[in-house]
């Protein structure tokens, strides 16, 4: 069959064969001495620019992503071409989404951003109330007499409201006396203080709670010993919305 296509293909094949023979010819007779190396260089000097150019093209092509291996990914079960991760099973989506929904808190929950001193009362994606609060100061208190150390951080994590109280009574812990330069009293009744915690308190466990304050002007600053302080109105709203078991997320 004659024609321009045949001629073109034959021409291509001819040049392909010639080019393919070049590397073989270049190393067919390995130069062994200086004279042979000089002869080799005289014969092949014209290849140097080509080799340099080819190397530059390879580096640039690799860098620019022009050269790509045309991968295709086949699902071994169906034989259908898919993406690298496979096509996936749509029926898997719903159980995963349901499992995620089940993990989300039901009903109102409390979120505390302790660095920014903000408390959010939320339900689902909605913010029901945003309040300015105060969180732990980060102070380290050392009792040089007994060697005890307290770190006044608000803990991060998930807590639950364990108890709700109206007009809570504060049983002052040892650090509250040490901080004032006093020795903790022996009698428990000497530790009782009324009104310090405000109108309500939500107990989170380990001595941490959300409570009120006598110093509302300090709200928004990190001044507490680890508890969360709220203003009067916000505390009432949070107290009314929260139930025993309500999740409190502190970050």
């Amino acid at each position: 069959m004659n024609g321009p296509g045949t001629a073109f293909l034959a021409c291509l094949a001819s040049w392909r064969d010639r080019i393919a023979r070049i590397p073989t010819a270049m190393v067919a007779k390995v130069p062994r001495n200086r004279r042979e190396w000089a002869a080799w260089a005289r014969r092949w000097w014209w290849a140097a620019p080509g080799v340099t150019l080819a190397a530059a093209v390879v580096v640039l092509a690799r860098g620019t992503g022009v050269v790509e291996v045309p991968w295709s990914w086949i699902d071994v079960r169906t034989g259908v071409e898919t993406g690298p991760g496979g096509r996936g099973d749509p029926s898997e989506l719903e159980p995963l989404a349901r499992a995620l929904r089940d993990m989300a808190p039901r009903g109102p929950y409390i979120v505390v951003d302790q660095t920014n001193n903000r408390l959010y009362l939320k339900e689902g994606d909605r913010v029901l109330r945003e309040a300015v609060c105060s969180a732990g100061s980060g102070m380290v208190l050392r009792d040089s007499e007994k060697g005890r150390v307290w770190v006044f951080d608000t803990p991060r994590g998930v807590f639950r409201v364990q108890k709700k109280a109206r007009n809570p009574v504060w049983k002052k812990p040892d650090w509250a006396f040490i901080e004032e330069g006093k020795r903790p009293p022996a009698r428990a009744s000497d530790r009782i203080e009324f009104g310090t915690l405000g109108e309500y308190a939500l107990y989170l466990g380990d001595g941490y709670m959300i409570h009120g304050t006598l110093y509302e002007r300090l709200l928004g600053r990190s001044v507490t010993h680890g508890c969360i302080r709220l203003g009067k109105e916000d505390l009432r709203a949070v107290h009314d919305a929260a139930e025993i078991g309500t999740e409190v997320y502190i970050f």
Binding site: T115, N116, N117, S137, G138, M139, V140, L141, R142, D143, S144, E145, F177, I178, E179, E180, G181, K182, R183, P184, L218, G220, R221, S222, V223
Partner: peptide, 27 residues
Amino acid sequence: PSDRYEVEVRPGDPDSPVPEARVPLPP
């Protein structure tokens, strides 16, 4: 930056300094 600070108190010792109330800056 860390805003942690340390206070050491010897309770009952009149010579031991009692930490002053420190009002931190807003965040």
